[in-house]
Each structure stands twice: as structure tokens, then as C-alpha cells.
């Protein structure tokens, strides 16, 4: 399949940035979205042009590194999948696709489609963690956790911290990320009194 890509190019945080149009030819429908971009980048590199910078890591949908707004939707139109698990068969031959970075003030663009998501680390540093004693594994049932709490914590732990909630929110708010971390940690085993009193993440 052949596609027209309208991609955001920006040299660094201070650059104004602009859209550049590329033609992606002979794209296999079985490629992931990122593999399609890899092929486009190979073409650019062989011509001596700078490849399109985009984030990726695990490429199996669990790390939350990819960060593309595809046709106006973070991670593209397929529900509950990251861009790396979005396959080209979901697009039509000859389609024009717009690709932008996450756009939010706390996520400044580093280059092209890569944004700096350290703002999330600051949220976690403010109390979104649990202290664990080092040493051997504790006994599995030493601290009883109810099934309900375990399930709720696991649901919240499904947040992989990719930042799509901030990218999608019309107010660029991190409320979903923060609430996922709060729900995750407050349903896990009780922490020391010291942590409870200083940690905003304890309910």
C-alpha cells in the first residue's frame, strides 16, 4: 500500500517546527506503524537526509515509550493499543496520515516526534513509590491483601505512563496518570506510618 505522511519536523525545543510531507511506498499491511516509519527513515538516510526522530523501546505494547498522535488521536485510532502495536492494515491504501508529537507545555519537544516526559518522573518522585526492604523475598502471604484491592491495584497498574492521557486531554491535564498511580499504590500493602504522613499518594 502507498501512503502520504504529513509529519511534524522540529530541530529542537526552540525551533518553530513545521509539517513535511513524505510518500511511503510499498508499505506492507503487516508492518506496525513504527516499522513503517523505520522504512521511511531508511529511505531518508540513504538519500542523506536526517531521519524522522521518534521514540520507541519494547515495540510490544507494554513500555509506553512510543508517543505519536496519529490523525489527531494519541497512539492512533485503534483502542487500547500503543502506536507500535497499531498495524498498517488499519489504514486504507492511498490514505493521508498526519503524525504529530504529544502537545503539552510540560512535554517540550526534544526533536521531531520525541517529547521530554520527565514531568511524569517529578510526579512519581513527589510520592508515587513504595519503600521495600532489601534482602530475600518476603513470604508471599505475610501481608494479606484482599482480592478486591489486588484487582483494583492491578487495574490501575495497567497505566504504562506513556503520556497519551495528557496528549489527549483538551486541558493537557495529567489527572488520569496521577489517579492511576494513586489508585495503584493506595491499594497495595500498608506502608510505614512515616510514609503515610508525608506521602500525598496515600488516601
Amino acid at each position: 500500500m502507498n501512503l502520504t505522511l504529513k509529519i511534524w519536523r522540529q530541530k529542537n525545543a526552540d525551533d518553530a517546527g513545521e509539517f513535511v510531507t513524505y510518500q511511503a511506498k510499498d508499505v506492507s499491511p503487516d508492518m506496525s506503524f513504527l516499522e513503517m516509519l523505520d522504512v521511511v527513515n531508511e529511505g531518508l538516510t540513504s538519500k542523506g537526509d536526517a531521519p524522522i526522530a521518534f521514540d520507541s523501546d519494547c515495540r510490544e505494547g507494554i513500555c509506553g515509550t512510543c508517543s505519536l498522535v496519529i490523525n489527531g488521536t494519541p497512539h492512533g485510532g485503534q483502542k487500547a493499543t500503543t502506536a507500535c502495536q497499531l498495524h498498517m492494515r488499519h489504514f486504507k491504501d492511498g490514505e493521508s496520515i498526519t503524525i504529530e508529537p504529544w502537545r503539552a507545555r510540560p512535554f517540550p519537544v526534544i526533536r521531531d516526534l520525541i517529547v521530554n516526559r520527565q514531568a511524569f518522573d517529578k510526579v512519581i518522585q513527589s510520592g508515587g513509590y513504595v519503600s521495600a526492604s532489601t534482602g530475600g523475598n518476603p513470604d508471599a502471604n505475610a501481608i494479606p491483601v484482599s482480592k478486591h484491592n489486588a484487582d483494583t491495584a492491578m487495574d490501575a497498574a495497567a497505566c504504562i505512563g506513556c503520556g497519551a492521557c495528557v496528549a489527549a486531554c483538551k486541558n493537557a491535564s495529567a489527572m488520569l496518570f496521577v489517579s492511576a498511580k494513586v489508585s495503584h499504590l493506595r491499594h497495595t500493602p500498608p506502608r510505614s506510618t512515616r510514609e503515610r504522613s508525608t506521602c500525598p499518594f496515600d488516601g
Binding site: 511534524w8 517546527g17 503539552a104 486541558n171
Partner: peptide, 11 residues
């Protein structure tokens, strides 16, 4: 809210 997204999405 508006200041939180100074660069708007084109699409």
C-alpha cells in the same frame, strides 16, 4: 488550561 497547551494540534 489554554496555557497548558501553547502549541495546538493541527489535527
Amino acid at each position: 488550561n489554554r496555557a497548558a497547551r501553547p502549541d495546538r494540534y493541527v489535527q
